[in-house]
């Protein structure tokens, strides 16, 4: 365990964890739009910045992104200094100029007292804040179907050649992880569309309910050594079968 001080309170943190985790355990609310436990920290939105210092630093202070900074013995962390708040406001103000219609951004900015951006609204704005969560989760899933395209202010997230992505299996991880709900998909129980690519959904033989896409199933069977007939029924049916089996086992026990 490592001893650190957060906003004046002495707390213990786990060796190797990042500051953000320790801060959140204290129920201190700091925004962190590009952070998600499922993927490696990235440090792009800069909202989670905090002030750090140590007794032996002779008053020298540093500002770091808490999502990326590993806890250290003796660290003194302040999450809401005037400078830190000023920075968060500026960032949210800038996000409000680049994604003016995002409800998530609007709400968060309002929490910091900003209801209208003080900057020029960016032409052709979208709700994408380039947090990189979608591409990171897609990489982690093993598909790498989408990526960042271009650079600088023109950067965007897109499939290769901006065509329906060949490597996409329609798992929807990107859409679920997107903090601003920018990534859209449709799903009518038979067919699913995301990134302009259409997928057919498998159906559970027992319930008739849709499960996952054919492509996703094929991938899991091939690369994750999942039995071929596993996807014939859905999770619910799997669980039911299991429950049934368990019930039988206990039944036998009683009978004996």
């Amino acid at each position: 365990m490592v001893n650190i001080t957060i906003n004046g309170k002495l707390v213990q943190a786990y060796e190797g964890e990042m500051l953000l985790a320790a801060i959140r355990r204290e129920n201190i609310d700091i925004p962190a739009l590009c952070h998600h436990e499922a993927v490696e920290p990235y440090g792009a939105c800069r909202l989670c910045m905090v002030e750090i210092t140590k007794n032996e630093w002779d008053g020298w202070k540093n500002h770091v992104t808490s999502c990326l900074y590993p806890v250290e013995e003796g660290l003194i962390v302040n999450t809401h200094t005037p400078t830190v708040i000023e920075l968060r406001k500026t960032i949210l103000d800038l996000f409000l100029a680049s994604s003016p219609h995002s409800t998530v951004i609007k709400k968060l900015a309002a929490e910091y007292g900003i209801t209208r951006t003080s900057y020029e609204e960016v032409p052709d704005s979208t709700d994408c804040i380039l947090c990189g969560l979608c591409t990171r989760i897609c990489d982690k899933m093993g598909f790498s179907a989408i990526s960042a395209v271009g650079r600088g202010h023109g950067k965007e997230i897109a499939p290769p050649l901006k065509e329906p992505p060949p490597d996409c299996v329609g798992c929807l991880s990107c859409a679920y992880i997107c903090p601003t709900h920018y990534i859209q998909f449709t799903d009518n129980g038979k067919e699913r569309t995301i990134w302009g690519k259409k997928f057919k959904l498998l159906r559970c033989e027992k319930t008739g309910l849709p499960t996952i896409t054919e492509e996703f199933a094929a991938y899991l069977i091939k690369h994750r050594e999942i039995p071929e007939d596993y996807f014939k029924i859905n999770d619910l049916s799997h669980r039911r079968e299991l429950a049934l089996k368990m019930g039988q086992i206990t039944q036998w026990g009683r009978e004996a």
């Binding site: 440090g43 792009a44 800069r46 960032i91 800038l94 100029a97 380039l130 960042a148 600088g152 202010h153």
Partner: peptide, 10 residues
Amino acid sequence: SCGKCNPCRE
């Protein structure tokens, strides 16, 4: 700018 972080890009 590489476009990764908000303060620089925006």
